[in-house]
Design a protein around this nucleic acid. Structure first.
Lengths: 201, 201
DNA sequence: AAAAAACCATTCCGAACGGCTTGTTTTTCT
DNA sequence: AGAAAAACAAGCCGTTCGGAATGGTTTTTT
């Protein structure tokens, strides 16, 4: 008789519920900020009751950790549709990765973790691993004209830092066009020191 | 008889109270974050009752606006003890201005204003003026080797963006030494394009 | 000296928070 | 089919928030 280890109708439903909840959390983080992303609002926006939310994520810390997990899974480097040159690649990093709602949500969590010791302890290991993974991916994608691998990591990290800082500037002047101008200027400075690595099939 | 328009004993006391309150606010913003910088805690840390705080700053918005005012008054360029070269000047901008508690407090307010419409409306004009003043000061202090004044403003703004983003990186790896290394790398990139302007007596 | 204004302390309020408990419905397993 | 587990709903609890009201004290002005 069908000993089907079928994924389970309920498991799928549960997974879908968790996805909806995390998506709602991201949305609220972007539009309302961390402290106003309350469990009540998340439940309401996701279309569940408070009890359902509590069932899937027993505490707010659990909810945020799960949401962060989803946010960190976003690829910094596009896995298909490889860009033609370094300039295009870095420009895409800005428009597709940094200057996007999901990244703003990520920054909200990072900022909250700065002063919330428990949250910080909960996610710090994951963040460190994330940083290491980003560095490794940088080396897979780029090479430095100087031949120094460490320089690749530095330049990519510096680029991300710059873009992060630029994203924050939106809060006090600096419209979208001006920010894009700055990004291009940065790329013009840094791109000549980098080259795209040949990707293995 | 002495028509002395003496400052007034009470006025001085009042001013001192406001200073203490704003200092406590800055301290709490740095150590606890914006949402945990409650009026109760501010009053307690400043050594006043809640009623006293309420007297000096009728609403939290007023308190934050006043504190922001104090934070924006910090000089980005050192007014005395002029640095010898562009490299030193930019390095000082990092160590004395950006990588300092007061700047973290400023970022907390900016971040809060992103989602708090009322606070944003209250401080946006002041922030715009601040940005303009920074640009003007940049032109007073620096000249571009290319002769293009706009480039001076851009490079200084890019430097501030980069340092801002670098400050945030502290939350997920990147110790103090590594951040300083990044700052120096950036300065090495950008300083050759700038020159200190001769300051009039 | 009297009146006015500024300063400060205490207390209370309604609202919202995160977390928890209890009860009902739906799915899965035997 | 029936028991167990998972999913969900609704409500309560203790706390804290920002703000308002009230009253007393000190300083300034008239």
């Amino acid at each position: 008789m069908a000993l089907t280890v079928v994924p389970g109708k309920q498991q799928a439903k549960s997974q879908r519920a968790r996805d909806l909840i995390c998506d709602a959390t991201i949305d609220l983080l972007v539009t309302q900020g961390y402290s106003d992303t309350s469990l009540n609002r998340v439940a309401a926006m996701a279309g569940f009751s408070k009890g359902a939310l509590q069932h899937h994520y027993p505490s707010k810390e659990d909810l945020i950790a799960a949401t962060l997990n989803k946010l960190l899974a976003r690829p910094f480097f596009p896995q298909r549709g490889k860009p033609e040159c370094v300039e295009d690649a870095l420009l895409q990093a800005w428009s597709k990765y940094i200057n996007a709602p999901a990244y703003r949500a990520l920054l909200e969590i990072l900022n909250a973790a700065r002063t919330d010791a428990l949250l910080h302890a909960r996610i710090s290991a994951e963040l460190l691993e994330w940083g290491r993974a980003l560095d490794a991916q940088s080396l897979e994608q780029y090479a430095a004209l100087s031949g120094d691998d460490e320089e690749v990591v530095m330049l990519l990290n510096m680029t991300r830092s710059f873009m992060r800082g630029l994203l924050i500037q939106e809060r006090y002047g600096g419209d979208e066009i001006k920010r894009l101008k700055y990004v291009k200027k940065w790329i013009a400075l840094v791109a000549p020191m980098l080259a795209l690595r040949e990707l293995p099939e």
